[in-house]
Design a protein around this nucleic acid. Structure first.
Lengths: 401, 401
DNA sequence: TGCCTTATGTTTCGAGGCGAAACAAAAGAA
DNA sequence: TTCTTTTGTTTCGCCTCGAAACATAAGGCA
């Protein structure tokens, strides 16, 4: 198990060693779901206790680790000093969606330190006005947050295609926004000195499934995440990491064609998944108003309403065709349904797993599973904060200098 | 541009530094398409000349680098000593396909040192007999290879689903093989001490596009590779690396559904891509015998034969539907056609690019491109050798101890 | 021809960081 | 009280790299 330096074309020096090991120690502490001691760190990393202790002390001095209270466990030997991720470090997660605004502060231990979620119909809203609202929300949030918090950065989850490098929102049909340079807008409404990076809502929400706290892996390492908003977004998680691709154009599962002879989609194609399993499509097929919730639909279908059942049936069929294609290509048989699809998971599962069993080549070897990502609202905001905190874990030395 | 150690949960020590930098130097020399000097290495890696020279000397001693002849270029200053990847290191690439057997030796400079390719109809063949033939081929190949070659390993490309870890061929419909443990069969027919790893043909062939020599990147960093054999396999290349997924079940593009109401496929699904754009489907639609070549089909279509043109048209349509889905999900707009599809690329391109322009969400921002991977036969064999050589580049220190 | 300039490669020295091993500390067990 | 066990600390030596001076091998120019 020799360690290997990443393929950055730059020579490694002594300080690189230090940087790397600082990160390793921090990640080791974060990865554990219980307090860890210097000795534990040494054991799991293979370092000597001397080295582990040196590194831990440096991280403690920088506030990236905290020493916890001694656990009064009756054990032989000198009692260990528990180590925890530094509670002072936190990040800001924001989300703008067609139906809500959210702002959340998550600390390095993965705790939600403060949050504000506001229902709002933002379809076709004016970007500047909406960003101003987001700014007010954030200001209130931070005013109520504990003092002494060190915000290391932030992220903004948006329901659309985003260029993470330039900070331009390229396309967000459900907000009615496109080609929007957000840097200026965000700079005007957010506290100075805080860097907020954009991200696709599905990509970021998938992080909340991939890790249950910064640096601590969730129950699944490889899965497909489906984010049911008005449209359907997706993310591929491989080895615990979201595969973003070379640009933001990945994960548009909603526009996978499930019926080439089907109706025209606003995207220019025909028979897109969204036309069968999108939020509006399902509600319309069930005879419900477009502002009904997924819970309403679920109730209808469970109560034996024929239109409701048919809507779910059609949705499961379309999801089956589209997901089978994705599973055949990326080879990951685990699908996590998020957003409004999470609430429908139990209803969709029987038919959907049946379709997948038939259409997925590997089904006989590894049967595809449909899971549900029930959780608090605005998972994208949490994911955005997690992403910012991941930056700290990747290079803690940067925060010490 | 700080260097970061990979996320292996093991502490980095001084020797790790050395190991890493040895690899970095070797890869730097390999990445260049012209001889490189110690001074060049220092400049591109940011090391001092002293360090670069130390590392180079160690690699020279181990044969991983060679010093070349001085280039009599009239330049000022002390002439540089050219460095080249060590020609003594090479790997064996094998391929078994429905229509051929291939064995090839590729050295660290990316040169084909020796090769044997044999046409053969292996559909439904007896695995043991076919492996015996492969063994004979390999023996002849190695007998004719230059002496002093150090074979670092090998790979076998198979047209099917493979478990790379256990060495089991799970499913190869066109050979008629399934659940075949190859380790024993290979061990019986290959020289002792040579480790040969399995690989999917498309995954390995994609490597020949991703890199033009070991450690030297090809023209495209991100692309989709389509391998047209009798079936249609695929591979996703992201950042120059083939994305293999957690098991071998990725890349089954041939069984993406393009028409849910379409005919039944042998895989159990309906309307699979393969039924429209697979080799047999195209030939049948064109009214050609199943043993005709893609060149025959191309000629027919170019000559204005209606059936031939229709076959190409249908193939392009089906590829359009399937690839649009893949591009929408993985966000990579570059598609490289390999195998028998390479020869049809020019014919498919107009219609196919049209379909993609309509069905791919990002088309207006980045128009999908269809490229052709024309090259020598049995690209999988070359890719298998490249994969083995990549192992050397990843950890050259291992070859020095 | 002889000296200067320039680029490459080598040698020497010092500093940073880790491992090894002894040591100190803090508890339970006998 | 003393022994045992586990954790944390200190000291020392080794490894590897960077810095800087030095050596080498060419062209340029008078």
């Amino acid at each position: 198990m020799t360690q290997r330096l990443a393929d950055v074309p730059s020579g490694a020096r002594q300080s690189t060693l230090r940087t790397t090991n600082l990160g390793l120690v921090l990640r080791t502490v974060c990865a554990s779901d219980r307090p860890t001691s210097r000795s534990d760190v040494a054991a799991t990393t293979g370092m000597t206790r001397a080295t582990a202790a040196r590194l831990v002390d440096e991280l403690l001095a920088g506030g990236l680790l905290d020493e916890g209270e001694r656990d009064p466990l009756p054990r032989r030997g000198r009692p260990a000093t528990p180590l925890l991720p530094g509670a002072a470090f936190a990040a800001l997660g924001l989300q703008v969606d067609a139906g809500l605004l959210a702002a959340r502060v998550v600390d390095l231990r993965g705790r939600v330190v403060a949050e504000r979620v506001e229902q709002a119909d933002l379809r076709g809203s004016e970007p500047a006005a909406t960003f101003a609202r987001l700014g007010v929300l954030t200001e209130e949030l931070l005013a109520g947050a504990p003092t002494g918090l060190r915000l290391v950065g932030g992220g903004l989850a948006l329901p659309g295609v985003v260029d993470e490098l330039t900070g331009v929102l390229l396309r967000a049909p459900n907000l009615g926004w496109s080609d929007l340079p957000t840097a200026g807008l965000l700079g005007d409404v957010l506290p100075a000195g805080l860097t907020v990076d954009l991200g696709n809502e599905a990509d970021l929400a998938a992080r909340t499934v991939a890790q249950e706290a910064p640096g601590r892996a969730g129950p699944h390492r490889d899965f497909l995440y489906l984010s049911g908003q008005i449209g359907i977004g997706g993310a591929v998680v491989l080895d615990g990491r979201v595969v973003t691709g070379s640009s933001g154009w990945a994960g548009e599962v909603g526009h996978v064609c499930v019926q080439p002879d089907g109706p025209a989609c606003s995207c220019g194609s025909t028979g897109c998944l969204e036309l069968y399993a999108g939020r509006h499509a399902l509600l319309r097929a069930a005879g419900l108003p477009l502002d009904a919730s997924s819970g309403d639909l679920a109730r209808l279908a469970r109560d034996g309403d024929p239109a409701g059942a048919a809507a779910v049936e059609t949705g499961a069929w379309a999801l089956g065709v589209a997901l089978a294609g994705v599973v055949n290509v990326v080879g990951i048989p685990t699908v996590v349904l998020g957003g409004h699809l999470a609430e429908l998971a139990d209803l969709l599962r029987p038919a959907l797993e049946g379709h997948l069993a038939r259409r997925v080549l590997s089904a006989r070897w590894r049967a595809p599973r449909i899971l549900s990502a029930r959780g608090p609202l605005a998972a994208g905001a949490t994911g955005a904060a997690l992403r910012a905190l991941d930056g700290v874990l990747a290079d803690p030395a940067h925060r010490l200098g």
